[in-house]
Design a protein around this nucleic acid. Sequence first.
DNA 1: ACTTAAACGAGACGGTACGTCGCGTCTTAAA
DNA 2: TTTAAGACGCGACGTACCGTCTCGTTTAAGT
Lengths: 213, 213, 213, 213
Amino acid sequence: MVTNEMSMATVSKEPKSGRPRDARLDAAILQATVELLEEHGYFDVSLAAIAERAGTTTPAIYRRWSSKADLVVQAVFRTEGDDVVADTGDLAADITTMVWWTVEKVCRPAGRAALVGLLGESHEELNGRRADVTRVMARAGERLERAKAADQIRPDVDTAVLVAMMSGSVLQMAVTNGRRGVDDAWVTALVSVLLDGIRPPVRSEREKGPVAP
Amino acid sequence: MVTNEMSMATVSKEPKSGRPRDARLDAAILQATVELLEEHGYFDVSLAAIAERAGTTTPAIYRRWSSKADLVVQAVFRTEGDDVVADTGDLAADITTMVWWTVEKVCRPAGRAALVGLLGESHEELNGRRADVTRVMARAGERLERAKAADQIRPDVDTAVLVAMMSGSVLQMAVTNGRRGVDDAWVTALVSVLLDGIRPPVRSEREKGPVAP
Amino acid sequence: MVTNEMSMATVSKEPKSGRPRDARLDAAILQATVELLEEHGYFDVSLAAIAERAGTTTPAIYRRWSSKADLVVQAVFRTEGDDVVADTGDLAADITTMVWWTVEKVCRPAGRAALVGLLGESHEELNGRRADVTRVMARAGERLERAKAADQIRPDVDTAVLVAMMSGSVLQMAVTNGRRGVDDAWVTALVSVLLDGIRPPVRSEREKGPVAP
Amino acid sequence: MVTNEMSMATVSKEPKSGRPRDARLDAAILQATVELLEEHGYFDVSLAAIAERAGTTTPAIYRRWSSKADLVVQAVFRTEGDDVVADTGDLAADITTMVWWTVEKVCRPAGRAALVGLLGESHEELNGRRADVTRVMARAGERLERAKAADQIRPDVDTAVLVAMMSGSVLQMAVTNGRRGVDDAWVTALVSVLLDGIRPPVRSEREKGPVAP
DNA sequence: ACTTAAACGAGACGGTACGTCGCGTCTTAAA
DNA sequence: TTTAAGACGCGACGTACCGTCTCGTTTAAGT
């Protein structure tokens, strides 16, 4: 079960007394963050600008998130994960759904910016920051495991690799193409290869014959 | 044929007169950049530190590259592309080679940092910065097109999607796992799915009959 | 009455809230400035060097002074003016005192550097920067006006011209000689001419007769 | 006799062979320097701007002058000195002439900028740069010595102090007032004090009586 | 006429220093 | 103990400009 508290990367510690935190500020800050990232990109958005648009100040942000990278990642990727992964029984349809969810998250300026927050520091302290992302990937993995149990997936396939292929392909487009090129046909093609591979089905029989070099 | 001139992302334009640029500084700066990124990550490396290790100063860097992001991307991804993509005739082996090349580039601290340079700005002026990356991807696409022409790939498969899957899967690991988890078994599994898909060899209904191996 | 607030040339404006400025940094910066100017001269002193000696950084300087020229002028000439101008009743002695004050300020490397700050920009915005200097000159002018009222100075003499002569003569030595040549004899000679002029005591024609002493 | 060669602060060494220096460039550079200083002040004039206005390049400037300060001082103060100091026999008139010459040189933006060149460095290498200035002052001193020999000046007066008073008073106005305040009346008042001092002439007799405190 | 030598325009170089931006912290006073 | 308000210290950034250098060309003087 996923708890409802915020990621461990945040600062909050649920104090016992004193003036309570204004919950509306949390929402305003997150929304302002996404909006500004959408408009200007990671480097060209300052916390002062976020604070201003949210109608507050930078210390109020730092009371909630430990750094700019932390805020940005949370603003874009915060989710429980349950709502993301469908299980309709139709594997192809569910994979398509998951791919589209990734596209929505990652193939937009704000999503690209959030990746910066995930990549900028080298030390492994950012595992907390990756919590939301890895949780979603775990959900997707579970869905695929069920498919494997239901004989919809070859038993020797590593579902972790599948998840990496599904979301990674979209990631690659996000890095090199932004959003252009990612449309229905592209997603369909991706799912098709995922399901059936690239090898021509006739090959198994044909190759037995005298194939030219 | 690949020309020998530098990427368009750089500033210089091969002047007709004037004092020539010190080529050793170019090399020293690029090397220092990769070294420091390997040690500290994008945000924890300053241009002043790069300049110091290269034995020069920041203006010398800005004369060659337009920004920190530009320098970092070039330092990591600069390549002609020819040397990257193998064509031995063995499709599975060549795909494996290309995947490993991506792993070497992207699953290390310096590679992650280069991604930051590719993702940090939103405006589309960074197309020049992506030149090296897209060139390599284009080479890989050509290799796959030849495979398709040789009937090693289903004719309805979009090779651009394939390339995104090959490199994107690695990218996903770089973002969420750093390097851990990417080993021979992982690459083998990736290539396996790419070639054969994930669907079990049910061969619809007809193969469910007495066609035992 | 002289207020205790800082010169208008500074940036700060006494805010109502917010973190208070560290007053020790103000003092440390001013002292470091004078020390380094004394050692190296205007152009050979960098704000980074000043900051380092003061144990801080350049932005902390720019938060307090608007430019290098501004800082240098304030560091050397900051004064209330009251402490400068003596009024013992003895006009010759008081003029001598004022001249020596000017010598101390202006005939040393730091003083010469401060003049650079006063002269380097052409636009008339540096009137604020001249505030301290003109305040002292105004004090001196008042002292001389009192002497005029006490019949110690010819009523047709412009005291502003006198002030210019007193301090300007020293200035001239500062520009062309540094400190050498400015000693007791020099100051005595200056005061002597100021008091009695250069014309020999011929007393027109009538004194040329048999009015032997 | 004053030689016609340039100041020792310059770079030129009169080579025996090679392409001769273009004398029109010398003039164009000097003129451009004064013009730009007049418009923008020392700090806001770059050698590149001077070179551009003179229709040449910075290396051509550095072939002639050793530094920016050197160029600026020469551009403003270069003179033989003979043409400056009049000797009409009328001491008051000649002093007035000398004062006005100083005013013309120093009470303008370019003159103020030239002072920066004279003051900016602390080490005594700039004695060469002061050559023109000290030469003029020496001429003025000679003129005053002749007046002393002709009994127009008290024999105990130090003429060097007089020169400092004449030009220094103007200098002071240049530093604190720019040009405003320096007019006919001001110069007349200055010369008047110089000639007759500030002490009221009646005083010698009056003070012998019972003067109130 | 050929060589030598230096100045020329053009333009970029290396590097010091500058002045600014922005992150994350801190202080004050009110709620 | 939070809030709003605002400035702080400081690391880093990207730029301006000084003074130098490398070209390829031009100009004169010496051979």
